[in-house]
């Protein structure tokens, strides 16, 4: 159980996230086939493979650089809406870790909040439109509520909230993105982007729990 994470922990955590998401790509593909065009899985796979390549080629010098490298890899390799959104999340979120040798619960909450704010601005969406926001926004709130309890507890709360957020997207009608034209037909299906958020946070939580 790790209440704080150092640079090497963060790099190892983001590697773990990348490897886990690459292994779970079929979950994302199938979710996207139901209400989109089915490219979310392979897109995220490209981004996380790019992250691992980036870490191998240029080991991050600090925590901020690690998060930013992941965001940059996703932005340029994933492409599409997912690349812009997840790239923005990690790149914007990285800024709150600037100059920090270690990060704890409050830093992770700030990371999620800042990332969320940037994604909201970039995507021009709000909560309840059946997007990544419906996984990310509850996660950021849950993280802030537990900020005093350390990195592992905060990630655990954020992951649980994101999973609940994914469940909630099943009851939402998509009003943006390629799924918006499905209207009522999108009901009953979870949002693939929100699923990605939950899988990322779950992988972070699992890493922090055993670090």
């Amino acid at each position: 159980m790790a209440a704080t994470l150092e640079k090497d922990d963060v790099v190892a955590m983001l590697r773990h996230v990348s490897e886990r998401l690459i292994a779970q790509v079929d979950i994302l593909t199938d979710a996207d086939l139901a209400i989109g065009d089915g490219d979310h899985g392979i897109g995220m796979q490209r981004g996380f493979e790019g992250t691992l390549e980036s870490f191998d080629a240029t080991p991050p010098e600090n925590i901020e650089a690690a998060f930013k490298a992941m965001g940059t890899a996703i932005l340029s390799k994933t492409g599409g809406a997912a690349g812009a959104i997840f790239g923005t999340l990690f790149r914007a979120g990285s800024k709150v870790t600037a100059g920090k040798e270690t990060i704890g619960g409050a830093d992770i909450a700030a990371f999620l909040e800042t990332g969320l704010e940037a994604v909201l601005k970039r995507g021009g969406v709000t909560e309840g439109q059946k997007t990544i926001i419906d996984g990310l926004a509850p996660a950021a709130r849950a993280a802030r509520a537990k900020e005093a309890e350390g990195a592992d507890a905060v990630l655990s709360a954020a992951a649980d909230a994101a999973v609940a957020g994914v469940e909630a997207t099943k009851g939402m009608v998509a009003t943006t993105g390629k799924a918006r034209s499905l209207g009522e037909r999108s009901l009953g299906h979870p949002d693939p982007g929100a699923i990605s958020v939950s899988l990322i946070l779950k992988a972070m939580q699992d890493f922090a729990a055993r670090a």
Binding site: D37, D39, I42, G43, R46, L75, S76, K77, T78, G79, G80, A81, A82, G83, A84, G87
Partner: peptide, 9 residues
């Protein structure tokens, strides 16, 4: 871009 995905910035 990649197949059915917008090009990156």
């Amino acid at each position: 871009g990649q197949v059915f995905a917008a090009p990156s910035p």
